[in-house]
């Protein structure tokens, strides 16, 4: 067992070098700041120990924001995984035009942030947005709805926009996984003559588990840190209804210049994400070793 350590490290060394060189200082710096009252507006930056952390953990608002983040994360990751898996299964079939469709799949992700903001803001606009017009035409709504300014439609709109950009990533990764197991799936299906759905649940999904766990983990990490789409669409509003941790970290650090508090929040979010990742790994990635 032990004799493998050094060869393994040899394989890993270029990657570790890149990561360590770039991350150790910034991470250490942020960690250091989180134990100080460090606001760029004031010269005085005293060491305060765990005070930043205790103030955050003791505030009601923080737990409310954690709740909002959890709701956002669970819903959007669920949707991304489901839609992503379905799209990947479809693109794994052979049909005319699938090459083009596979490439076009990347479109939502490739649109720059600022354009995405305009796109969704205008689609959802209550007075000249297209969504209202279409829904009205097919008779789903009776009057123009102001999607971003009441709950739960504000949260739902943000999730829809977010899911749309993230589905390509999930679908792409799952699709590649499907490609590498397609032979086993076909063989197994030939042997027991299983139907489409049995095949999916009994054969494909278990074989794909390592890849699915990784996608699930990535999407959870991304969703827990979400910031951009909230920034453009709702600014965390109405009230605090869509204020998530990523937004709160941004507003602490860049609006208040309270880098101490902001870093402490970031550390807590990092820790939370790590716990979730480890739990996924432990319970979903059961392995032979």
């Amino acid at each position: 067992m032990k004799n493998n350590f050094w060869p393994a490290l040899g394989f890993l060394s270029p990657a570790l070098l890149v990561i360590l060189v770039t991350i150790v200082f910034p991470f250490g710096y942020a960690f250091f700041l989180s134990f100080h009252k460090w606001n760029l507006k004031y010269r005085d930056t005293p060491f305060v120990g765990f005070k930043n952390y205790s103030r955050i953990l003791g505030s009601e608002t923080f737990w409310e924001i954690v709740g909002t983040t959890a709701v956002f994360c669970v819903l959007s990751v669920f949707l991304i995984m489901t839609i992503g898996y379905l799209i990947a299964l479809l693109l794994n079939e052979e049909f005319w035009g699938r090459g083009m469709l596979r490439a076009l799949l990347l479109v939502p992700w490739a649109i720059p942030e600022v354009v995405n903001g305009i796109l969704w803001k205008w689609l959802l606009d209550p007075s000249f947005g297209i969504l209202n017009r279409i829904l009205m035409k097919i008779g789903l709504i009776e009057e123009y709805h102001s999607w971003l300014n009441s709950m739960p439609s504000a949260m739902f709109s943000v999730i829809v926009a977010y899911v749309w950009t993230h589905v390509p990533l999930a679908a792409l990764i799952i699709l590649a996984g499907l490609q590498s197991i397609s032979k086993e799936v076909k063989e197994a299906a030939l042997v027991d003559g299983a139907g489409i759905f049995d095949r999916l649940i009994l054969i494909t999904t278990p074989l794909l588990r390592p890849v699915l766990v990784v996608v699930l983990m990535f999407e959870t990490i991304f969703a827990l840190k979400v910031f951009d789409i909230i920034y453009v669409l709702t600014g965390g509003g109405p009230g605090r209804a869509t204020t998530v941790l990523g937004w709160q970290i941004y507003s602490r650090t860049f609006t208040n210049l309270a880098f101490g508090r902001g870093s402490a929040l970031a550390m807590l979010l990092g820790l939370l994400t790590l716990i979730v990742a480890v739990l996924y790994f432990k319970y979903l990635n059961k392995e032979e070793d």
Partner: peptide, 22 residues
């Protein structure tokens, strides 16, 4: 007052008026 105001900044209200809806 349009409740869309709650998610509108300067460029948004300019658009709302320019569109003729407000």
């Amino acid at each position: 007052i349009d409740e869309a105001s709650l998610s509108s900044g300067d460029h948004d209200v300019v658009n709302m008026l320019s569109a003729g809806s407000h």
